[in-house]
């Protein structure tokens, strides 16, 4: 194809970024990784310590990551507070052991939280989805959070203390992220559900992909890495650099579109455009016609 020559530059760009990632990796990853063919970008298990620079304290991983995203564990010192908050807010459904078995007398099956990783817990609490307003609803909607940021970290710290697991809570370095890469990756990975303008849309059986218009960077990264609800998890298929690119695109262009052509018409695309064209365009002109012509 004639396409290939021009696309080669893109491949080169990918290759370069892969190289940038691979160099530190070769240093920090176990021996078998060095046998990988050169085109492997080492994104395997991205979002876990397996693929990144790891910081340990007393033999426990406290943070890991790279220049794009740093994943930090919530401080274990918060665990006691976290347990109290947990018992108060979450235990009625998820059980006192956080294993999804509620106290005797209650019915229903709820997710086991043990081993989900602090990012998951933080995402659900900080997006206001948990504690749920209606535990039986098909999909908990985004709301004003009931717990504060520190309280969410505390709950995550306690659940993580039961069985330490990944991913930790990400901090995204947006400064070096590439918004153009993010746009391309967004179109490839996210637009199918959230729409290309980030508005979200209805999915099967009353579920829906939420709008991305008002979501902080950390939660975007958490959602990508943990796959909340019906969203797939993006682990080995996206590197931290790529996630940072997507997060930058979402928090800039999606959340603050430039709309150089005027009002954005709610981002609904041709539906809204059709209504504007017919009602405002044809309608207004018909009214003018009504004035021009005679009425009898």
């Amino acid at each position: 194809m004639g396409a290939s020559s021009a696309r080669r530059s893109r491949i080169v760009a990918w290759g370069l970024s892969a190289f940038v990632v691979a160099v530190p990796l070769a240093w920090f990853t176990p021996a078998h990784a060095s046998t990988l063919p050169p085109y492997q970008t080492g994104r395997r298990n991205a979002g876990t310590p397996n693929s990144s620079v790891v910081v340990k304290k007393h033999g426990v991983v406290t943070s890991y990551g790279d220049s794009a995203i740093t994943y930090r564990a919530p401080s274990p010192a918060l665990a006691a507070l976290g347990q109290a908050l947990y018992l108060q807010n979450c235990a009625s459904c998820h059980g006192t052991e956080a294993n999804g078995v509620p106290a005797a007398g209650t019915t229903g099956a709820y997710p086991n939280l043990v081993g989900l990783g602090p990012a998951t817990i933080d995402f659900w609490i900080e997006s206001g989805r948990m504690p749920a307003a209606d535990p039986r609803s098909v999909q908990a909607p985004r709301r004003t959070p009931r717990l504060t940021h520190d309280q969410a970290l505390a709950v995550a710290a306690w659940i993580n203390s039961l069985s330490p697991s990944y991913p930790y809570i990400p901090t995204v370095n947006l400064k070096d992220a590439n918004v153009a890469n993010g746009a391309a990756l967004f179109a490839l990975n996210c637009a199918a559900c959230h729409t290309i303008e980030g508005d979200g849309d209805a999915l099967a059986r009353s579920t829906f992909a939420p709008s991305l218009r008002n979501i902080p960077a950390t939660q975007v990264a958490e959602a990508i890495r943990t796959g909340p609800g019906n969203m797939p998890r993006f682990t080995g298929n996206l590197s931290d650099y790529q996630v940072a690119d997507i997060v930058k695109y979402v928090t800039t262009e999606i959340q603050h579109p430039r709309n150089p052509g005027g009002f954005g018409l709610g981002g609904l695309g041709p539906v809204a455009e059709g209504f504007v064209g017919l009602l405002l365009g044809v309608g207004l002109l018909a009214l003018v016609g009504f004035w021009v012509g005679e009425r009898q």
């Binding site: 063919p37 492997q40 970008t41 994104r43 395997r44 796959g227 998890r233 682990t235 298929n237």
Partner: peptide, 12 residues
């Protein structure tokens, strides 16, 4: 990039 068996987590 070739996909390796360890690349995808369940649900990816």
């Amino acid at each position: 990039r070739r996909i390796h068996v360890s690349d995808l987590a369940v649900g990816s």
